Amino acid sequence: MSNGRDGVAPRLQPSDLRFDPPEVDEDVRRVLLRQHWGLEGSLNRLDGERDQNTRVTTSGGDVFVLKIASSSEDRSVAEFQCAALDHLAQADPELLVPRVVQAMAGERIVNLESDGVSMSARLLTFLPGVTFDSAGSLGPDALVGVGASQGRLASAFRGFEHAAATNFMAWSLDSGMVSNEELWTDLSPEGRACAAPYRERVESAASSLAGTRHQVVHNDGHRGNLLRRTQDTTDVIGVIDFGDIAKTAVIADLAICGASFIDCHPNQCAALGSIAAGYHSAMPLDSNEVDLLADLVLTRIVLGLLLVEYQARHAPSHRLTEIASELPSYQANLSRWGELDPSATTAALHHQLDTTERR
């Protein structure tokens, strides 16, 4: 946070939450690619909350993603993400996730000095496919597949440790951000009307995570990070964006995925049950974790509203339109999920998983 003056409490800054992607000129990025990876090609900007992301397409048709981290982010975070992708390549080679591309001198991460600021850069392979952003309401089998893909990732991460795995990650459900007074105070009237009735409930759920199983997980299995082959298919073929990976509660990983895929579904409880069944088939859950799931889905939606509203106030201009477009969905999803009886939802989830195990 910035320093307080005259007794005024310090305010959150984008760098506190790592919501400050750099702006590196295209000419600098071209020199970086040429010097360290020997690459030339067309450059196209990709969205990035904390990194400046660029799709690089060579004349031969090879495609990569250049990621330049914010100067506020310690190099160890990039090292953690690279190590995680390397681990997945060994633990489950058939998982379709990005791969780290070594520079010509053998580095996985290179230093970049631009306008007197030091940053780290890395290159990843680009995964082809179509996200689930426009997939609409998925059927039970497709939702089971979604859950299974995230459970498989979590299972592959078992035993993986890294010194930076417990670094602060704003989007983790146990980060403390869902209880941050400044975020609540600065909510818009519309956001406050949606979220305030559930504040006590979600803060209690987040605090309960301390007593659950923790490990490194993907932590970001939303519709925009899971890939299918075409607009007409629903099988998950790949997973992208490992920028939010963290050592956190396993059940939170499922809740994050569930919160995204139940959005706009006509039967949200049944949809979450299908996702949970798929996750459970690859990464078995215990009863206490399932007890928390309904409230953790709510926690994810509330946290999303808090952080997206914050970003709408502070994000660089090129991201504002996209961020603003997310707010109505968060508000609608929060209202619909919050109205469900959590006890009945939890009972239905247990029944779904018990039924799945007996098959």
Rank of each mutant, 00 (worst) to 15 (best):
L306S: 01
W337R: 05
S281G: 14
P328N: 12
R336I: 09
H280I: 10
L272K: 08
E357D: 11
P316H: 02
H350K: 12
S317H: 10
L292V: 08
L296G: 06
G278T: 12
H318G: 00
M283V: 03
A294E: 01
T345G: 02
L307Q: 08
C264Y: 01
P284E: 12
A271S: 03
P284R: 10
D295S: 13
T299L: 00
A276W: 06
Q331P: 08
R319M: 10
D341T: 06
P316T: 04
I275K: 04
Q268I: 11
N267W: 04
A276T: 11
H318S: 05
A347W: 00
E289W: 01
V308N: 08
M283L: 06
A312K: 03
T356A: 07
H280Q: 14
E326R: 12
D341V: 00
H351F: 03
S343F: 11
R319L: 10
A270L: 14
T345S: 12
G273K: 11
D341K: 02
L293E: 04
Q331V: 13
N267E: 13
A271L: 06
I275N: 05
M283C: 14
T321G: 07
L272H: 09
E339L: 11
D341R: 01
L340W: 06
L272A: 14
L298Y: 06
Q331E: 13
L305Y: 02
Y330G: 02
A324Q: 15
L272C: 11
A294L: 01
D354H: 09
G338T: 10
S343R: 15
L305G: 03
H314L: 10
N333P: 04
D286A: 05
A347I: 10
V290K: 08
T346H: 04
L305P: 04
A294W: 00
T321M: 06
T345N: 12
C269F: 05
P284G: 09
S325C: 08
L306E: 07
M283E: 15
Q311N: 03
L292R: 02
L303A: 00
L285A: 07
Q331S: 04
T299D: 00
N288A: 14
S335T: 11
P328C: 09
G304I: 00
E309T: 06
L292H: 09
R313G: 13
S343Y: 08
I301A: 02
P342F: 02
D286V: 15
S287W: 09
Y279S: 01
H265R: 07
A312R: 09
H280V: 09
A276K: 04
E309Y: 08
N333C: 15
P266W: 01
L293R: 04
C269E: 13
E326S: 03
G304Q: 08
Q352G: 00
A312F: 05
P284L: 03
I323D: 04
L298E: 01
L327G: 09
H265C: 05
M283P: 00
G278H: 03
A324F: 02
R319F: 05
R313Y: 02
